[in-house]
Design a protein around this nucleic acid. Structure first.
Length: 102
DNA sequence: GGGCTGACTGACG
DNA sequence: ACGTCAGCCAGCC
């Protein structure tokens, strides 16, 4: 049952297109948890490797801290390889890259 | 059942 | 613009 939430999170993440991003809160709202952004973060800790996990960012357009330190630069590198640009403070422009398809 | 923990967020100072 | 704070809620003791 509780795994339904995880499954729904992963199903949404799987749909995010190349070169676009979504936020934790955005996913939470899409699965009916208006303020469940942290739960989405919890689910993303165990995100299956075959999903585009790097396309999930925080509400400020920044990359949130992960378990492994290397994961943050890796996520940024993956996004940059898809044409996404970061500003000096390490944030991307959500108005430009956010995917609204969920 | 009760308390703690986050890959969060919006509000404040 | 940056650091803090208090809510948030499923999962895990």
């Amino acid at each position: 049952m509780g795994e339904d939430i995880f499954a729904r999170v992963y199903a949404l993440v799987a749909q995010v297109p190349y070169g676009r991003v979504v936020t934790y809160g955005q996913i939470a709202r899409a699965i009916g948890l208006e303020r469940g952004a942290r739960v989405v973060g919890w689910a993303m800790r165990r995100c299956p490797a075959n999903l585009p996990w790097h396309r999930v960012v925080n509400a400020q357009g920044g990359i949130s801290l992960h378990d492994a330190p290397e994961t943050v630069p890796l996520q940024r590198a993956l996004l940059e390889s898809e044409g996404i640009r970061f500003d000096r403070s390490g944030r991307l422009d959500l108005a430009r890259y956010r995917w609204e398809g969920i």
